[in-house]
Nucleic acid binder design. Structure first.
Lengths: 337, 337
DNA sequence: TACCGAATGTCCATCGTTGACATGCGGCTG
DNA sequence: CAGCCGCATGTCAACGATGGACATTCGGTA
C-alpha cells in the first residue's frame, strides 16, 4: 500500500518546484498554460489530491464544513431539514458534518464539542438540551450558531422556526368560520416550544371567536403512556364533545385518524404537518416545507460566515392551510353562537 | 474577537511545556495528577479545544470521519439509510460527512473528490454514475469503499443491498398460492439494479407457478412521462387483465392505490416498500428496514477501517412480507391452471 | 541599452499537535 | 555506593500546504 502523493511528489514528477504546484492548486498567481498542463498531468498520474487538513491548518482553521446537530435521527422531519441545509451548503462549496444527539439532552454538549474540534465554520443546531449557554465561548470566537425549529435557551443565536402560532390560528379560524366553537386540540408528547406556540395559536383563534376557555378540549399528551387515539376517545366521550379537532403534530394526526375512522360521528379534522397520503384520504392540514426550513438555515449560515456582522435574526417559515375536505365539514345543528 | 487558544497557550498558563499538555489530551503517557489538574484548570479557563485538523495532519491523515454520498437528498429512503450509518458511526466515535449528488451522475466524482480531500477514513456510496472505476486509485490507498442499495460498476467494493429478488419472489408466491396467475408488475422509472432484481424475483416466482411469459403484464415505467396510475389503467383495461398487482417501489404503490380506489374491480395488491399508513389502509407490502441497511453499511465501514483484510463482501438485508389484507384477496372464479 | 513584467525558483516560517529522543531525579538492587 | 530503572517532563523536528520576501531568467519594449 503506497503512501498518498503530496505536492512534492507531483512537483518532482513534473520537474517543477513545489511552489509552482501549489500555485496551480491555490490559483494565487499565474502559471503558464504548458506548465499547468504538465503539472495536472503528473497529478493525475499520481492520483494526487491536495490535503485539505494541511491547507486548512495553514490557513488558520478556515474549513469548508458546517455542522448540523439534530435530535432523534429517525425523525423524518429532521432529515428534511438536513436535506435543505445540505442543498444550500453544497451550492456554496461547503460540506455538512452531521451528528445526532439521539434526543438525549445530556449528550448535546458532547456531540457539539466533538464537531467544534473539527473547526466547523458554523453550527446549525436543533436544541434539545435545556440550556445552550455552553456555546457562549464559541460564539465569541466568531462561529455562527443557528438554531432550527426552536430557539436556544440562554444563548443569543439566529433562529429559524415555522410559523407555528399563526399557522395553527389560521386552521382554527377556518373552523370557527364554519360555525365550530367546540374544537378539540390533540397533541402527542412533543417538543415544548412548538407545542406551546401551536397551542397559543389555537387559543388565540378561539378567543377571537368568543371562546375564552378551551381547557376542557385540550389534550396535550404530557404523559407518554397515553396514545393520541385514547385522547381522541376521551374527548369525544366527554360530556361536552367537540365538533372539530385540530392536532398538534403528525403523530397526533395519525392517531386521530385511526380513532375517527372507527367512529360514527362526523368530526371535522385539521392536522398539523402534511403527509404523503393526506391528499388521497382528503385530510386538511396545516402544511409547511421542512426542506425550506433547512434551506433558510443553510443560507443564514453562509451569510453569517461571509459577513459576520448584524443583529440576531429570527426567521419564520410560513405555513399553508391545505383544504382537502376533512376540515371543511360545517358545525352540526344550529350555529352555537 | 480573540484567537482560539492552543496547546501552547494552555501550557504557558499552566506553567508546563506544550508536550505535557498534549500528553493530557492524548493520554499517551503518564502525567502526575497535580500537573494534570493544573492543566485542565488552565484549559477550561481558556475554553481550549484541541485542534483536530492539526492532530490528524500530524498523524498522517487519520481522521475520524466517514463520508456518505447519496443521490436525491429528498428521497426519504436514503435518509433512513443515512440515519442507520450515523448511528453506527457515532457509537464508534466517528462522525459522518454527508453529501448528495442530486441524482446527477456526472456530479458523483466531483462530490466524492471533495470528500476524499478531507481524508475521510471510509467512503459509503449510493452509486449513481455509470462507472465507479475512478475510485480504483483511492481503494489502493487503503480507503474502504462500501456501496449501498446497489453494487458499484467496474470497481471491487463491499456492498450492502436489500434482498430484492427473494423478497419480491416471496410476495408473488403468496399470490400464486391464492390461485393468481395473471399478476401485473408496475414500476416507476427507478434505479436499474433494484428494478431488475425485483423483476427477476417476480418472473422467477411466476415461472415456478407455470407462467413462463409474463411480459404482457409488465409495466416497467421506462418513460418518465407515464404515471403509475396510467400504467395500472392500461393494464386493467387490456384484453387480458391481471387479477393481482405487485409494485416495484413506493411511488408505484401510491399510484396503484389511487387508481384502484377509483375502480370497481377487486384486485389483489402487494407493494414493495412499507409506508406509514399501510397498516391503516390494509395494504400488504414487502417491508424492509432501511435503517438496518444503513447500520450494516456503517458496521462494515468500521470493520474495514479496523482490519483492512478480507475478501469483498456482499451483504443482503432481508425483507419481510407483511400481510394486511390487500394481498390476501384470492383469485376470482375457477382456478386458471 | 536599460528596464519591465511574467513565470518560476529558493528559502524559511507557519498553522497546532505529536512522535522520537533526551534529561533529571529519586529509589531500588547487589 | 555504583549502576540501573522508570517516571515526569522537556526539546526538537515533522506532518503537508502555503505565504512572504526575494532572486533569477527571458522575451519584449521604450
Amino acid at each position: 500500500m503506497q503512501p498518498r502523493a503530496t505536492l512534492h511528489d507531483v512537483a518532482r514528477l513534473a520537474g517543477v518546484s513545489a511552489k509552482t504546484v501549489s500555485r496551480v492548486y491555490s490559483g494565487s498567481s499565474s502559471v503558464s498554460p504548458e506548465t499547468r498542463e504538465r503539472i495536472l498531468e503528473a497529478a493525475k498520474r499520481l492520483h494526487f489530491r491536495p490535503n485539505t487538513l494541511a491547507r486548512n491548518l495553514r490557513q488558520g482553521g478556515k474549513t469548508a464544513t458546517v455542522a448540523f446537530v439534530m435530535g432523534d435521527i429517525r425523525n423524518p422531519f429532521y432529515f428534511q431539514v438536513a436535506a435543505g441545509i445540505e442543498q444550500e451548503l453544497t451550492k456554496n462549496g461547503f460540506t455538512m458534518l452531521l451528528a445526532s444527539t439521539g434526543d438525549a439532552p445530556e449528550s448535546e454538549p458532547v456531540v457539539v464539542d466533538a464537531l467544534l474540534r473539527q473547526l466547523v465554520r458554523a453550527l446549525v443546531l436543533i436544541p434539545i438540551a435545556g440550556d445552550q449557554s455552553y456555546l457562549e465561548g464559541e460564539r465569541h470566537l466568531g462561529t455562527p450558531i443557528i438554531t432550527v425549529d426552536r430557539p436556544a435557551n440562554d444563548l443569543v443565536a439566529d433562529t429559524v422556526v415555522l410559523a407555528n402560532r399563526s399557522g395553527m390560528a389560521e386552521a382554527v379560524r377556518s373552523l370557527t368560520a364554519l360555525g365550530h366553537r367546540r374544537i378539540g386540540f390533540i397533541s402527542n408528547p412533543s417538543e415544548m416550544y412548538t407545542l406551546t406556540e401551536r397551542l397559543a395559536g389555537y387559543r388565540q383563534a378561539l378567543a377571537e371567536a368568543g371562546v375564552a376557555d378551551s381547557s376542557s378540549w385540550e389534550r396535550l399528551g404530557n404523559d407518554r403512556a397515553i396514545s393520541p387515539e385514547s385522547q381522541v376517545r376521551s374527548l369525544l366521550d366527554s360530556d361536552d364533545p367537540p365538533t372539530a379537532i385540530v392536532t398538534g403534530n403528525n403523530r397526533a394526526t395519525m392517531g386521530a385518524l385511526r380513532e375517527l375512522k372507527a367512529r360514527p360521528e362526523e368530526i371535522a379534522l385539521i392536522g398539523f404537518d402534511d403527509f404523503e397520503l393526506a391528499e388521497m384520504l382528503g385530510i386538511s392540514v396545516v402544511a409547511h416545507d421542512p426542506i425550506e426550513l433547512g434551506r433558510a438555515a443553510g443560507r443564514l449560515a453562509i451569510e453569517r460566515i461571509e459577513h459576520h456582522a448584524g443583529p440576531t435574526r429570527l426567521i419564520e417559515i410560513p405555513t399553508r392551510l391545505v383544504k382537502r375536505g376533512s376540515g371543511e365539514i360545517p358545525a352540526p345543528g344550529p350555529r352555537a353562537d
